[in-house]
Simulated scan of single mutants.
Amino acid sequence: MVLKCVAIDDEPLALELIKNYVSRFPALQLLQTFEDAVSGAEYLRYNAADLLFVDINMPDITGIDLVRALTSKPMVIFTTAYKNFALEGFELEAIDYLLKPIDLKRFGKAIEKATDYYRYKTATTAEGKDESLYVYSEYRMVKINLKDIEYIESMEDYIKIHLQFDKTILTLMPLKKVLEKLPEDKFQRIHRSYIVPVGKIISIQNRKVKLPAVELPISDSYADFARRWMKLR
Rank of each mutant, 00 (worst) to 15 (best):
K4P: 00
K4G: 01
V6L: 03
D10I: 10
L13M: 04
A14Q: 08
L17P: 00
I18S: 03
K19L: 07
K19C: 08
N20F: 05
Y21E: 09
Y21C: 02
V22S: 07
V22F: 05
R24W: 08
P26D: 15
L30E: 06
L31G: 04
L31N: 09
Q32V: 00
Q32H: 12
T33D: 03
F34K: 13
F34Q: 13
E35M: 12
D36V: 08
V38G: 06
A41G: 04
L44F: 02
Y46P: 00
Y46T: 09
Y46H: 05
N47Q: 11
N47H: 12
A49P: 00
V54D: 02
I56V: 15
P59Q: 15
I61F: 02
I61K: 11
I64S: 06
L66K: 03
S72I: 11
I77N: 01
I77V: 12
I77E: 01
F78T: 06
T79P: 00
Y82N: 07
G89I: 07
L92S: 06
A94N: 01
D96R: 14
Y97F: 13
Y97I: 12
L98V: 11
L99F: 07
P101S: 10
D103W: 13
L104A: 13
R106C: 07
G108E: 15
K109Q: 15
K109C: 04
K109I: 15
A110I: 14
I111K: 11
K113Y: 08
K113A: 05
T115H: 05
D116V: 13
D116T: 12
Y117E: 07
Y120T: 14
A123Q: 02
T125P: 04
E127H: 06
D130F: 12
S132E: 11
Y134H: 03
Y136G: 03
E138M: 07
E138N: 15
E138F: 14
R140E: 06
M141P: 01
V142P: 01
I144F: 03
D148P: 01
I149R: 00
E150A: 11
I152T: 05
E153W: 09
E153P: 01
S154F: 07
S154D: 06
S154N: 11
M155N: 06
Y158F: 11
K160F: 02
L163E: 05
F165M: 06
D166V: 07
D166T: 14
K167C: 03
K167E: 08
K167P: 00
T168D: 04
T168V: 13
L170T: 12
L170Y: 08
L170G: 03
L172C: 11
M173E: 08
K176H: 12
K177H: 13
V178R: 08
L182G: 03
L182F: 04
E184M: 06
D185F: 09
K186E: 09
Q188A: 13
I190T: 10
H191I: 14
R192M: 11
R192G: 07
R192C: 04
S193L: 09
V196N: 00
P197L: 15
V198I: 15
G199S: 10
G199I: 12
I201Y: 04
S203N: 11
Q205S: 09
R207T: 03
V209R: 02
L211V: 09
P212M: 13
L216H: 09
S219H: 09
A223L: 11
D224A: 05
R227P: 00
K231P: 00
L232V: 12
